[in-house]
Design a protein around this nucleic acid. Structure first.
Lengths: 254, 254
DNA sequence: CCACTGCGGTCGACAATGTCGACCGCCTGT
DNA sequence: ACAGGCGGTCGACATTGTCGACCGCAGTGG
């Protein structure tokens, strides 16, 4: 049966639609957006609701994502081997560097943040686990593109979206950057996505040298950079953390 | 069409199965566990995989939850109105009380943690957003059972699982406790779930006085209690935070 | 006050769809 | 070399999801 199950694909599309739109959506909105008959959309929504994947606001009748998704997302993190092994190293890295640490994996056309260590001793911060970052303009993303052919494929040929004046928007520029990354073994991203923010990232690979994710530190450009370049000491910290996690992954085959 | 969509329910069951088992599961394991033909299970798994809800370890062929779930779970939090309005109050409460703050909603037979503020200035802690707590032995759970008939229904008639010597395991005891909770307007849970941990919780309700969730603070029994009772000042903090969030929910009809 | 329009939800006929169980090739442990 | 398990495929069958018309309701503007 080499065809995807229609009703399931449609259900997934509905979930993604609900995740995308900021506000709740009505039955008809969902049906027209996905070009489904109202009855069909209703059947799927009702099932999703009864499974807890979707909730319905009782007074407006509109639909939104359900709590079960949060629970399952958490379970995903629990099982995630890379994350489990990286937890302690990421913590150490944050402490040593004094900056925020992110751990990301390739997911579709972006980097999914699977771990996030807050900058030590600092103000209120929003947890970004579960959110996505672009491939072509972040340290995590560029590392993955440089080493993972699948990531390079997902990136496409551009031109890519521009976030700041320093964003690389042409495929050629990104590919050149990637060659440099492979040569040096790490990358930076200075104000390529957010003004004032600089990051340093390095690759994590498994026992068979397959790229499986990336770590980075991220912080205000004044603290991460010096004389226009990222501080070598921070680069060293990130690289050694990445190596440590990779080694950890290689060792632990229970 | 008043029947749930079969393939969807089955897919949900598979996801829950994968979430439950700690380790990855093979196709045959999934099929036998849910009493499905292998072909059927395979079709569903393949669709789930291609939608990103499930991933397959390329060498063992076994399945685990996929990254898309994490992303959707995050989106659920983004849309969640209670959580959005409670963020700042929870923060203030944590600072004022000097203890960990949890925000939970009823989900199936438990309390789903939708927000978690770390205890200020303290050691490494694990984020528990997305995890579940029991209804009968935690401050969050007991508050919900006391005020939400649905929660009381989900709880059933017991006997309930015992975690410590102080856990209430009989329906009668819990119901008596709930009457007290309704009278006082708050509850505590001192070493009823975890040894050494005490919590204080209060109800959050929406503009129409429906129970929608609960807040609690949680910390070591030596800090939360005094002379064998929880500190009245902490109770006051929790209750005022709960009122503030409820008021906020009542006001904000965009 | 009442058409009127939009909503969420239901219904039943139809055939497209998902399901089933036998089968295949592969790897692993014996 | 074999047996047994695995993940995966295939094609016939009828169960199952789909479609579009229909329903009652709520809000709205004449």
């Amino acid at each position: 049966m080499p065809g995807p199950i229609q009703s399931l694909s449609r259900a997934a599309a509905i979930l993604r639609l609900l995740a995308g739109g900021e506000r709740r959506l009505g039955l008809s909105e969902v049906a027209t957006a996905l070009d489904l008959a109202k009855g069909t959309a209703h059947g799927i929504l009702r099932t999703l609701q009864q499974e807890g994947f979707v909730e319905q606001d009782p007074e407006s009748g509109k639909y939104q994502l359900g709590a079960e998704l949060l629970r399952l997302g958490q379970s995903y993190l629990d099982v995630h081997e890379l994350r489990a092994r990286a937890l302690v190293w990421a913590d150490d890295l944050a402490r040593a560097a004094g900056e925020t640490v992110y751990l990301g994996v390739l997911h579709q056309q972006g980097v999914l943040i699977v771990h996030h260590v807050f900058r030590p001793d600092d103000t209120r911060q929003v947890l970004e686990v579960g959110s996505m970052q672009p491939l072509h303009s972040t340290a995590l993303g560029k590392v993955l593109v440089a080493y993972d052919p699948v990531a390079r494929g997902e990136l496409g040929d551009g031109p890519y979206e521009s976030y700041t004046l320093r964003t690389l928007t042409e495929a050629g520029d990104v590919d050149a950057e990637c060659a440099l990354i492979r040569e040096r073994g790490w990358t930076d991203s200075v104000e390529e996505t957010w003004e004032g923010v600089a990051s340093i990232g390095a690759l994590i690979q498994d026992r068979r040298r397959n790229p499986v994710g990336a770590v980075c530190i991220s912080g205000p450009v004044e603290r991460v950079c010096e004389d226009g370049f990222v501080k070598p000491s921070l680069v060293a910290s990130v690289r050694s953390a990445a190596r440590a996690i990779s080694r950890d992954l290689g060792a632990g085959r229970f």
